[in-house]
Design a protein around this nucleic acid. Structure first.
Lengths: 154, 154
DNA sequence: GGTAATTAATCAGGGCACTGAGTATTCTGG
DNA sequence: CCAGAATACTCAGTGCCCTGATTAATTACC
């Protein structure tokens, strides 16, 4: 009595979607490199020499999580971490050759996996799917980081 | 060079969506009870006396995760766990009065939060949003648990 | 030039999610 | 009745994700 239908709860659906993706990633892409790790590799292919915090911003990982992910990638020898000579607080990140190779290999597999994952949707539906999720996620992130500090009204 | 646009990667979007939801849940619903915990409470309101594995199935949590979540809810006094007299392997789960009260309270707040979360979408878009995510998640779960073991072809 | 605020990174701690291995109980077939 | 398969749960190990507190370096302001 008074129980709710979880299928109408976006948070529940988001979690199930991510679990489903995790599973497919594991079987079709890699058992070693995870999807967030790939996102970091990708960010560093696009912009080599970024610092840790900025990479986190690019891929949507907070300061603690990005530290762990980077430490794992470093242990695997996929990236190098050098103290910024111009700002002693920062570490600058750069992929190793192995990191670049790994990124290239996984890019191909990821594309295949995305096709399988999205296969139940028509091309038009896929576009809508991306757009709707992005709008919801962007809006919720916006609530967190108000661009304008809301000029005080009192 | 050769970097990919993560906005076209459903897994990345799913992760960001879930993170956004986590944030909103924390500020608008509860800092103690998480969304998966609420899902378990909800399942037990609908079907009191379920065993652990079945609850996990209902809410989409694997055997290990459901064990942890249930142990936390038990520690908070929100549910009771009794050995099934008819099958000594099972534990039967039932909400305490406090568990029922908590579920009722959070149900209200969750509804409010969902409204805020989905506010960027029109009513029609919300329907599509649910449907598309559900189809993708169901299909991917189907790949994992083939309903019919595919009558052998060899 | 020196104090205060800011910023990048780390650490401790809690929670979710999966796999593989192990234990206890029940079911199945002879 | 008894051996073997299946089932419910637990445990160990890895990884993601967040917050709050701490440390070290830089920037801003006087």
């Amino acid at each position: 009595m008074a129980a709710v239908d979880l299928a109408t709860h976006p948070g529940h659906l988001a979690r199930r979607l991510q679990q489903a993706h995790y599973l497919l990633w594991n079987t079709m892409v890699s058992e070693e490199i995870t999807s967030p790790q790939f996102a970091v590799l990708n960010a560093l292919v696009a912009e080599p020499g970024l610092d840790q915090r900025t990479v986190g911003e690019r891929v949507g990982l907070d300061r603690s999580t990005i530290a762990e992910v980077i430490s794992r990638l470093g242990r695997r020898g996929l990236l190098d971490k050098v103290r910024d000579p111009r700002d002693g607080r920062r570490f600058l990140l750069r992929l190793t050759e192995d990191g670049v190779r790994t990124h290239r290999k996984l890019t191909v597999r990821t594309a295949r996996m995305n096709q399988v994952f999205l296969a139940p949707l028509s091309a038009a539906e896929q576009t809508v799917f991306f757009e709707l999720i992005q709008r919801v996620a962007d809006a919720a992130e916006g609530l967190r980081n108000p661009a304008e500090p809301l000029a005080a009204q009192g």
